[in-house]
Design a protein around this nucleic acid. Structure first.
Length: 220
DNA sequence: GTTAGGATGATCT
DNA sequence: GATCATCCTAACA
């Protein structure tokens, strides 16, 4: 059962918890993406948890490789991967260190810097689409693999001494209204990984991506 | 409103 | 060689 009113303090140890605790706790919080052109703020509305070695859906399921190496590192860092030949996806690594797990950011509402986000994603027809879906989210926030392994600062370490060029921060934001946090199967995850209801979203929010079940692709 | 098909390349078996 | 934590467009209802 999801207890959507439990909110951990947003300190350095926020991400150093089991991924299933962190994932619903991220809903409603704000990811600040700082670019050379300015800041974009995104209120998170949809995430998916990937639970490392016990989860067939996780990139870390078959052990450490060059691609998934940051999932095996300390929590509070970004894991960015490239998929389908075109797209990037942004994850946040959770703890404790040694249990490689991450949270895929699937959807959010741009609450500041919408002009920058629109410039990054000119094909978007309406603002609700800007970060609706993981690859759209990464595109709107100008995230690519050059940001893999970046530190995700919390407010306490970033108030005065934020390193120049630090690309991500997380702010407290506004919690979802009571009773609106939902969970269900993860999008696009098949096999045994499909049984876990590890997708979390804010019910009724227009920036949550439509659910699509896993479907094997036809070969051509 | 929904659905089918193509784009495109890194990664892993 | 197959798979992939996807998106967009066109076609249809």
């Amino acid at each position: 059962m999801i207890t959507d009113r439990e909110r951990a303090p947003l300190t350095r140890s926020f991400f150093d918890r089991p991924v299933l605790d962190v994932a619903p706790d991220l809903l409603g919080r704000i990811l600040v993406r700082t670019t050379p052109d300015g800041a974009i703020e995104l209120r998170l509305t949809e995430v998916e948890a990937y639970a490392g070695p016990v989860d067939p859906g996780s990139h870390a399921y078959r052990g450490r490789t060059e691609r998934n190496a940051v999932m095996f590192g300390p929590p509070g860092h970004s894991y960015v991967y490239f998929t389908y030949g075109m797209w990037h996806c942004l994850n946040l690594v959770c703890g404790p260190e040694g249990t490689p797990s991450g949270i895929l950011l699937r959807g959010g509402e741009i609450i500041r810097g919408a002009d920058l986000a629109r410039a990054n994603r000119p094909t978007s027809r309406k603002d609700a689409d800007l970060a609706q879906g993981p690859a759209r989210l990464a595109t709107a926030l100008a995230v690519d693999r050059s940001l893999n392994g970046s530190d995700v600062c919390d407010p306490w370490t970033s108030v005065a001494g934020e390193p120049a060029g630090s690309p991500f921060r997380v702010l407290t934001g506004t919690p979802p209204a009571a009773g609106l946090v939902r969970s269900g199967p993860r999008t696009g995850v098949g096999g045994e990984g499909a049984v876990h209801p590890w997708r979390f979203w804010i019910d009724g929010d227009r920036t949550v991506s439509p659910y699509r079940a896993h479907a094997p692709r036809r070969r051509r």
